[in-house]
Write a protein that binds this DNA or RNA. Structure first.
Lengths: 230, 230
DNA sequence: TCACTTTCTGACTGATAGTCATTTTTAATG
DNA sequence: CATTAAAAATGACTATCAGTCAGAAAGTGA
């Protein structure tokens, strides 16, 4: 039994070694410019071996995507580990900040996320377990957000006339839009737009969160905020 | 002189004929699956000729992207042609709806937008005139939004403690996030998330706009809305 | 008709994703 | 330790396709 286990562990280590090498090569260039031969050399293996562990180049890249997805979710989880000290509204804000930090610290993983979602028809993915885990993570992230909203409705920080699932989906998607812009601007896009404003992405993001918060905060909470700012 | 003009016009027609063919082929499959040989055949030209009109495959795809971008902007412009009958806040809402409709009617163009923004470093684009026009259009779209906000601040429908440029950028990016989700769900992504909710993307989008509107509406406007709903 | 320019062609090249028959390594058995 | 079977790894090979370029065809003007 443990023999099999060891085998499985070694196989897993090999797999990770390949993903490590692939990250180094692909992140230093780009998916298109990186070749499987290069990745094989970086991993100190032959090309054929890569194909023993991954269906094809895309599959390998999705394995990288999954790593990023796992990492992001672990950060979300950390936010919730201290959930008791915060209102639901604060948790939402913290999740947003976590996301923005992630994009700034791990732009290459975010690039991978974008590639993943750009895959035009899901059939291309086949039944990739990496893709499944990514979808699973996304689902979990949304659940975190739903939970935060429910907490907020309990503690009175979020207006309870909203449907938590719906609101969570909206926040999720719009936050994603902001992070995508942050990411793109870091790659040279949107230069003209953001350059004209003296504010950086993080200020912009802060204002975005404030805007959302004003929209979804309960009337009571708003009154509190108004008072405390005076 | 007019000789040269005619020549230029014919060249332009050829170019469009190629883009037409490329759209048919690429939209029916995907960028990666479409080959230049196929596109050439569809255009009833030889492959070599394609390269007289476009730098490379990406350049050709960006020409398609520009078409989509032009189309979207013309729709935005139409919203503004009747600007006098609407408040600034209404214009913002109409722009959002226009965007969502566009994604639903022209998903292939939106796919192209996503590809364009996913280009990891802008140097790849070189000095493509198509890319320049896309950036120009994006800039113009943002200006439409800024204008709508300014109108809204004038007519009292938008809270004037916001900075129009900043707010426009935020709305722009977050709306983009929602449309991206709409697009992705149409391609089979996010299935699990959206399936659980009985609401469709357009309802979700409507609620998103309401949320934004509440966040950015002036207090006066909110009071009006409250009264009228009673 | 000739000479010159512009446009077009398609066979060719180079790069690279993916394959598979063969070799090497590992592990188990007597 | 020697033998053998299974598992893992290899790298030469194939197929595909983006991009090229020398030469053909079409257009233009005298």
């Amino acid at each position: 039994m443990s023999k099999k286990d060891r085998k499985a562990r070694e196989k897993e280590r090999r797999r990770n070694q390949i993903i490590d090498a692939a990250e180094r090569v692909i992140f230093s260039k780009s998916l298109e410019q990186a070749t499987m031969d290069e990745i094989a050399e970086e991993a100190e293996l032959s090309k054929g071996t890569l194909y023993l562990y991954f269906e094809n180049k895309t599959d390998l890249y999705i394995a990288i995507t999954q790593r990023g997805s796992d990492l992001l979710n672990s950060k979300f989880a950390k936010v919730f580990s201290g959930a008791h000290d915060h209102t639901g509204l604060e948790l939402i804000r913290m999740m947003g900040e976590t996301y923005l930090n992630f994009v700034e610290e791990h732009p290459n993983y975010f690039t991978a996320f974008m590639y993943y979602e750009s895959i035009s028809n899901v059939e291309v993915l086949g039944d990739s377990k990496y893709a499944k885990q990514c979808d699973q993570n996304r689902h979990e992230a949304l659940n975190f957000m739903i939970r935060a909203l429910q907490i907020g409705m309990q503690d009175g920080s979020v207006d309870d006339r909203y449907e938590p699932k719906e609101l969570a989906t909206i926040i999720f998607a719009s936050t994603r839009g902001l992070t995508a812009m942050t990411h793109a601007s870091g790659r040279g896009h949107y230069f003209e737009l953001l350059d004209e404003m003296e504010v950086g992405m993080s200020t912009l993001f802060e204002n975005f969160l404030n805007l959302l918060v004003e929209g979804m905060a309960s009337k009571k909470e708003l009154k509190d905020m108004e008072n405390s700012s005076k």
